[in-house]
Amino acid sequence: MAELLEYVVLTDTRFLIALLCIVFNPLFWNLVARWEYRTHTITRLFGSPYIGCYSLGVVIISLAVLRSHCFTEAMKTQPHIGALESTGVYYLSWMLIGAGGVLVVSSFLALGFVGTYLGDYFGILMEKKVTGFPFNVMENPMYWGSTANYLGLALLNASPAGLLLTALVALCYKVAILYEGPFTEEIYRKKETAKKRK
């Protein structure tokens, strides 16, 4: 890790902006979703939990596009490592991007828009937990698929800065999972309790 840092200009503006985007995104959607769950402000504002959820989803997608753009821009102004510019790394990069894409897209198809973009925080609950592919392969496949995409891009660009930013993406997702998992389980536990009382 120390060797990697020698190739990264930590004070570069584009690198810092990418870093801020990476940290901001999961923080934003977790705070806003919990706020909605407790206050239903977005639902009241739009007059419907579905419209509120779709609106928040569009904001989250826009932030993800911005984060990816900033990630790519940060790599352009940073040094590259020649050792990563090999045929093996090139193919590994595309394998990671392909696998990551499959995980992200199949997660979205399994959950749908509302399931992907925090519908449960709006009171739009799924009938049962999704257990098919890719959820039968790993927990949180969308997060790890996204991380694989960033890792593939970093390797494809032979970018130490990209590798460092990818590690930050993985760390932020890991922290988000620690907060999201138990909270979501509690939402569904309350649903089951309410069903039993009827």
Rank of each mutant, 00 (worst) to 15 (best):
M95I: 13
L96V: 01
G88Q: 05
A64C: 10
L84M: 13
S55M: 08
W29F: 14
W94A: 07
N25Y: 11
G98F: 06
P49G: 00
E85L: 10
A74G: 05
R38L: 12
F71T: 02
T41S: 15
R44V: 07
Y37M: 09
N30R: 09
L63M: 14
H80K: 15
E73P: 08
A83C: 06
A64L: 12
S48T: 02
E73W: 11
V58A: 15
C53V: 01
L92G: 04
L27I: 12
L92N: 01
S55G: 10
Y54V: 10
V23F: 07
F46T: 05
T87F: 12
S68N: 12
Y91V: 05
V23A: 15
Q78N: 04
W94T: 05
F28P: 03
F28V: 05
P26W: 04
P49Q: 02
P79N: 07
H40M: 04
G52D: 01
C70E: 15
A64W: 08
L56S: 03
S93F: 00
T72H: 12
V59L: 15
E73R: 15
I81M: 15
G88T: 03
C70K: 15
G47Y: 00
S62I: 09
S93C: 02
V59E: 10
T41W: 15
M75D: 01
Q78I: 03
N25K: 11
A74T: 01
M75A: 06
C53E: 00
